[in-house]
């Protein structure tokens, strides 16, 4: 399982994360990224973190609850 943490103070609204992992991350009304699911086994979240120019997305591997 992966746990996603987004630092919204860093987010610029670039949006490459939602292209990479549309099921796990979305953009809110202000255009900033937020998590849809806090934990997922969707490996696309790793691509989402890599795609973020601001380094605002942290993905940690965690034990399944």
């Amino acid at each position: 399982m992966f746990k996603i943490v987004i630092d919204r103070s860093l987010c610029s609204g670039f949006g490459a994360c939602i292209d990479a992992a549309p099921l796990a991350i979305e953009l809110d009304d202000e255009g900033l990224a937020r998590v849809v699911v806090r934990e997922t086994d969707d490996e696309a979240v790793l691509d989402a973190a890599s795609a973020c120019p601001m380094g605002a997305i942290e993905v940690r591997e965690v034990e399944a609850a």
Binding site: C11, S12, G13, F14, G15, A16, I18, L27, D29, E30, G31, L32
Partner: peptide
């Protein structure tokens, strides 16, 4: 200061 327009513009 217009974060809400970036994603659309990028596309």
């Amino acid at each position: 200061n217009r974060p809400d327009e970036v994603a659309g513009l990028r596309r």
